[in-house]
Design a protein around this nucleic acid. Structure first.
Lengths: 137, 137
DNA sequence: CTGCCTGCAAATAGTTTGCAAGTTA
DNA sequence: TAACTTGCAAACTATTTGCAGGCAG
């Protein structure tokens, strides 16, 4: 909790109840969430909460690099977000049940090769693997 | 042209003018296009063309595996589509000018490892690399 | 007190859909 | 002719925005 407060302070963001709850929820989840999923979770405690508040904060957090907006959508076409961790990783997603696992990144050498061969300065990359998990097989 | 006709026939799709033009345009482009980009290109020859027709056909083609819907959007948040080629590949995108290059896939061994370690049956994967191209550097 | 946040309502924009007329096989 | 396609208009839905009151610093 204290960590969240200082995280907000460090980024010049006011320490509001909504923000604390959004970050807390994202930290406690083991999988990325969409704005709406967050919304329904938090609405229980605060019926006045608006979806636009969630979006505004997720965007602000993304801007400040506290949260990462994935290029992965759930089955409702909603974008997913996760807290940004220190370790760079990718995702393995079960197309049946939607379960998401984290994967390490195997691409360090490959990215250097791509940069060299194409004369690009690499800025970012995304890898997502889809399959069927053990339970759903 | 004849190829497009038989491609449509082989998939039980009627050989209409719109379909031929959509596929022809996608084949001739060297980069993926959005529905709207296609729409504006084709609207010149046919002012009555509707965007919904493009969407309907792109979805139908995707369903039939003639076209691939990428999980990449252009700067207007429009989904991009490309014709499905025999060779599996990924994309290297310049974040400045939007240029898209094809990349081979370096992940064969890695995917086997992921499947084994996580007990998943791998179905699909997406890799996209973002950077700045030579011209934009 | 002053600027940032949030609730609220309405707009924006990509994509989809129902229906009737037109086309393909 | 029967089934599929398209034009057209309208709906749907994720996300964003303007505004006014509320709260953090």
């Amino acid at each position: 909790m204290a960590e969240i407060k200082s995280l907000l302070q460090a980024n010049n963001l006011k320490n509001t109840g909504q923000r604390r709850k959004i970050l807390k929820t994202l930290y406690n989840e083991d999988k990325p969430l969409s704005a709406k999923e967050l919304f329904f979770k938090l609405k229980k405690d605060n019926p006045k909460l608006k979806l636009s508040t969630i979006y505004r904060n997720l965007n602000k957090f993304t801007e400040k690099d506290i949260v990462k907006k994935l290029n992965i959508k759930n089955e409702k076409h909603e974008n997913l977000f996760e807290v940004k961790t220190d370790r760079h990783h990718h995702h393995l997603i079960c197309v049946e049940c939607g379960d998401i696992k984290e994967l390490g990144c195997p691409l360090d050498d490959y990215l250097k090769k791509v940069a060299k061969e194409n004369n690009y300065k690499i800025k970012d990359h995304r890898l997502t693997i889809y399959g069927i998990c053990n339970k759903c097989k």
